[in-house]
Design a protein around this nucleic acid. Sequence first.
DNA 1: CTCATGTCGATACACTGTATTTCTCCAATA
DNA 2: TATTGGAGAAATACAGTGTATCGACATGAG
Lengths: 230, 230
Amino acid sequence: MTVWDRPEQPNRPVPLDRERIVAAAIALADEGGLEAVSLRKVAARLNAGPMRLYGFISTKEELFDLMVDEVQAEILPEEQPGDWREALRVLAHRTRQAALRHEWLADLLGGRPTLGPNGLAVTEAKLAALDGLADVDTVMRAVETVSAYFTGAIRREIANLRAERATGLSKRDWQRASGPHVTRMLATGRFPALAKAVYDGTDVDAEESFATGLDWVLDAVAAKLTRPLA
Amino acid sequence: MTVWDRPEQPNRPVPLDRERIVAAAIALADEGGLEAVSLRKVAARLNAGPMRLYGFISTKEELFDLMVDEVQAEILPEEQPGDWREALRVLAHRTRQAALRHEWLADLLGGRPTLGPNGLAVTEAKLAALDGLADVDTVMRAVETVSAYFTGAIRREIANLRAERATGLSKRDWQRASGPHVTRMLATGRFPALAKAVYDGTDVDAEESFATGLDWVLDAVAAKLTRPLA
DNA sequence: CTCATGTCGATACACTGTATTTCTCCAATA
DNA sequence: TATTGGAGAAATACAGTGTATCGACATGAG
């Protein structure tokens, strides 16, 4: 048997590791959303059988955890700004940007504790930003509050974005966008405050609205920080 | 053919409507989580074939929307308190309680715009609470900020609750609970602030932590409300 | 060269959401 | 009254899912 009829790598399966698997899964999710991620498709993208993955992962949920942790790495800023407020703001905005790059992140955000190395690093960064500025409990409460805010805000933003995309290209105008249904509902007069908000409200862009709410929450944190130290 | 051999209701299929379908789905979800809800099981619980449901629903996602809207009804308080702050606080707490009753709600919260009748009513209640206390845009921002906070907070709380439940009965102590992994990570010294938080932090119960963060956010809202009116 | 070992792929299973086809029964028409 | 539509329920079908199991095979040791 000469070199010519012998396959270059006789039956050598492609090497695999978590990194490659997660990368493939993320690529799939970026293209077609979370529900486009199936173990079969991930494996196929790596020229492997589906069962191969179970050497690195024991369940699909674990794959999701790994995906989230991978994205957390994108969130950590290269250097920590001095000001606690700036630090938290940057983390919030970078999380939002990550979610805009990987919309599926919104589906997973807050869904499970993030205990991976990068997830822990992000948490560490949040806590470190406030370290020493108040007692431990206040710091934790502050971090949790800010995180809860931007988790919720990002989820809503992505949810609206998808809804708008689905109902055709309409900016934020709810009423026409989501079809006659909301318009009809508003016309019933049962939701006066909502109607006023929809009709008289300014169409403010998502990033600004995110930033505004974030600033409010940071204001609140600031108020609680100064007190216990004085 | 006499009365005796004729079946009482000859082949009459069980009457069905959305209400019944949604109730069955919610029951299933309450028992076994969202992933226990399959169209086949819902239908079976109603003595019907799976395809029967498609007369009332055109996709499974719609069923989820209906489930969420149904639960929103539980959130609306019987009477609106006078104080805006109290109103928002009550709505937040009732949402949390609903999520504790129906844990699957946490998976859906903020995932899609809530355009059903009850969802709209809840939004109306939020907006109405602040109506007239500031310009429309400020009111919207306030409502969105508060909602983002408690959406995120509830999600995290349920996520932690599940994690604790999964790792055996451990209260909040993260480190031992989630196995040796976190302990080992903390021992590396790479997460000093996190370690301090975990070891020195007080074990505060979830409701109090929720309420505290909520109060902070409401403080922030209060600060923004008074200004534009003065 | 033989044999054990451990890893990979194929196969299998129970289940999913949904499209399509088949059947059944009721009501209106001839 | 007999027939024939037609509607709506049911059965079947399909492509796909996560995961358990099992058989084969390449590779190392003796």
